[in-house]
């Protein structure tokens, strides 16, 4: 452990704003990608089910 305290960790030598804006944004983007992936799969499966119900042989 290189930090004296959690306060020092979050402060990042006075550059906490820049460090956490970077790491936070990355976490946000990755979470968003996870949501997008789920949405797309759900959409594809729903369209599949609809096609099957209607006997759609497009």
């Amino acid at each position: 452990m290189i930090w004296d305290s959690w306060t020092a960790f979050f402060d990042m030598g006075g550059r906490g704003y820049y460090v956490w804006m970077s790491f936070g944004f990355t976490a946000l983007v990755l979470a968003a990608e996870g949501l997008l992936l789920r949405q797309r799969r759900a959409g594809a499966e729903a369209a599949n089910d609809r096609a099957e119900e209607q006997g759609d042989d497009r």
Binding site: M1, I2, W3, F9, M12, G13, G14, R15, Y18, V19, S22, F23, T26
Partner: peptide
């Protein structure tokens, strides 16, 4: 990257952004 790597002599702690910036 956040708990073991030492502070950078020139840039200070902000250099830790490298650990996501460069891989991305």
């Amino acid at each position: 990257g956040l708990f073991r790597a030492p502070v950078d002599a020139q840039q200070g702690e902000v250099y830790r952004v490298i650990f996501i910036h460069v891989p991305a």
